[in-house]
Every structure is written in C-alpha cells, then in structure tokens.
C-alpha cells in the first residue's frame, strides 16, 4: 500500500487533474482509516507536519475560537514541552498561562473552582505514564487533549474539544501529526492559515506519509488487546524488580498508566553514565536527568512530582520486546548501579 501511495500520492490533492484526484482519494482514505481507528469523524481529522505542530494548532486554535470569552490558558505542570511552549507563546502575546500541580504519582490535582478559557491536559504522561482525569476537567472548560503518548495504545478519553497525536509515537513515520477538532467546537486558525480543502491544514499534505501513519495506527489498534496486557505484565515485572535495588524510586501510577513505559531514579547515580553503560550492553533507554538533556535542565515532569531527577531512566517497550530482553536488562541493572555508586564513593 505504501508503494502504491508513493507512486500515486505525489500530486497536490487540491488540484483537479488525474494524479491530483488520485492523491485526494488516497488522502481521504487515510483520513477515514485514521478516524475509524480513533473512533472520531473523518471531518474531525487534519494531518499536520508533526505532533508538535498539531499541539500548537489545537491549544492556540481553541484559545482563538474562545477569544471573546477570555484568554486564560491552564495546563497541568507535567504537560509535554510543546504545550508549555504554546502557553508561553500565548502569554507573550497578551494572554495568560498558568499551570496546576500534580500529586506524587504525577496525576493532576482536581480543581473544582477552576476558571479557564481553555484547559490543556494530556491523556497520559509521556515520561511516567500516569493517566490523567480528563473527563473531570472537560466539564470545567473547553479541553485540549494531548494524546501524543497514548494514541493507539489507549482509547481516547471522552470530553475533549480538540486533540493532538503524533504518528511516530505509534510506529508510523516521523513528520505526520494529527489535529482532531470536534464537530461544532469553536476553533479558529491561530496562524496565517492556507487555502487547502481542509481549512485546518497548512501546506500540501504528505499523502504517502498520512497513509503510512493510518496503516500503522490501524495495526496498533487491532493488536492492542493482545500487546497491551503483555506489555503491562513486562512493565510490572520491571517495576517490582527495580524497586528491590536499594535507594531506588519507581515513579508514576503503578496501575492506571500507559502499558509500555516506566520511569525510575537511582539515588547517587549519574543519569548519563547509566544510559551509556546500558547502551554499551545493547539497551537503548532514555533519561529525564539534567545531564542528559540538551538544556541541562532536569525533567520538569519529575520536578513537578517531587521525584528524584538524577539517576533517572525511562524504559519504553516496543511491540516486539521479549521476556528474554527484559530478563537481560534486569540481570545487568543492579550491577551497573552498584558499580556507578562505588565509583562515586557512596
């Protein structure tokens, strides 16, 4: 199908000649398949050049649509950087942007008296996996849902006005994001816009990429009932094994969480050193420690939770990760931690 898309999907779907009509049909197919996989309407789906751009369009477009009602954006303190950047951009242009705190599991603390023009909340946290109480917040203000970490793996929660997702997060190609805007919601393009068939799209759609993203999403959703529980069980094993290592903090909700990832921190351990040691043994893992970040800032998610930020590791499972690979990781981890602590003199 991808070969067919590359062969027939090169033309501008807005034009009227034959190749363009083919591209238009392929794009509409991608839109319909994506909508079906997510349980939304096809006319609620827009393909964007990235998940980040979809987040910016979603957050700022809801604010633009509600401009007469106010200009106060509220987000949880553990949102992805793309939401935080949209909020700072909004504030720099005369709006206001505040964040609400999370509990030690990373779950946003309910705000019964919340006053917001728009509230931005993730479906589940991208670093620690904790699922957020989206429905409760959707009752209080038009809600932008960041579904980038969860789309495909978990069903979309109810109540959102606009949402964003990112194809590479579910195994699709990079360079394809999704903006979802509920039918009837007040959304206005916050940017200069364009004259596409889809009024929310800017520039010529990447038709082959959109088709590949849709196919990958369908596959992930189709096998979610089989892969999800298997990943959950593997993560449970990692959580319980890692928590037996002295002075280790496993963070995030142990149950109500994304199926495939876990984050933990080892006291007195250098995050960069442990990532390097694991990489040398063939394990590719991420870290939220400051020394591993381009900004040299620790993860704002871990800091907002009051969790330890140094010595941090994030393990994400792929659909193919096996029991044996997890066994291999758990076999080497205690020794690496002990060696690094000994080197540090503790």
């Amino acid at each position: 199908m991808i070969e067919q898309a590359l062969e027939h999907g090169y033309a501008d779907p807005r034009r009227l000649h034959g190749p363009a009509r083919n591209a238009r049909i392929l794009l509409d197919n991608a839109r319909e398949a994506t909508a079906e996989a997510l349980g939304v309407r096809p006319d609620e789906v827009t393909f964007t050049p990235s998940g980040t751009h979809a987040v910016h369009l979603g957050v700022l477009g809801l604010l633009a649509g509600s401009a007469r009602a106010g200009s106060h954006l509220v987000a949880s303190a553990v949102e992805h950087a793309s939401v935080m950047h949209a909020g700072e951009w909004h504030a720099a242009r005369g709006g206001s942007f505040t964040t609400i705190p999370v509990d030690p599991l990373g779950r946003v603390v309910d705000q019964p008296a919340l006053e917001a023009t728009v509230v931005a909340l993730q479906a589940a946290n991208h670093e620690v996996g904790t699922v957020q109480p989206v429905a409760a917040f959707a009752e209080r203000a038009p809600l932008f849902l960041d579904a980038c970490a969860s789309a495909g793996r978990l069903a979309l929660p109810e109540g959102w006005a606009a949402a964003a997702a990112s194809a590479h997060k579910w195994g699709g190609p990079a360079g394809i994001g999704l903006l979802l805007v509920r039918k009837g919601v007040r959304w206005r393009n916050p940017f200069p816009g364009d004259d596409r068939v889809d009024e929310r799209a800017t520039g010529m759609e990447n038709v082959p990429g959109a088709l590949a993203a849709a196919a990958a999403l369908q596959a992930v959703v189709a096998e979610r009932d089989e892969v999800g529980p298997r990943q959950r069980a593997l993560i449970d094993r990692i959580r319980s094994a890692v928590s037996t290592i002295a002075d280790t903090e496993v963070v995030g909700d142990p149950v109500d969480r994304l199926p495939h990832l876990v984050t933990f921190s080892f006291l007195y351990v250098d995050g960069e050193a442990i990532v390097t040691e694991l990489d040398r043994r063939g394990f590719g893992v991420a870290s939220g420690s400051a020394c591993t970040a381009s900004t040299l800032q620790p993860s704002h998610v871990l800091a907002a939770m009051g969790a330890l930020t140094h010595g941090n590791l994030r393990i994400s499972l792929t659909r193919e990760t096996t029991d044996a690979e997890v066994d291999g990781l758990l076999a080497v981890l205690p020794g690496i931690v002990a060696d690094l602590r000994a080197e540090a003199g503790v």
Partner: peptide, 15 residues
C-alpha cells in the same frame, strides 16, 4: 548552582 539540586535535595530528604 546546578538546577537539579532544587528538585533533588527535597527528594533526597523525603527518601
């Protein structure tokens, strides 16, 4: 001066 200390000193105290 390292900014991680702002999160990690309180976290260490808790642990």
């Amino acid at each position: 001066g390292d900014v991680a200390a702002r999160a990690d000193v309180p976290a260490w105290c808790r642990m």
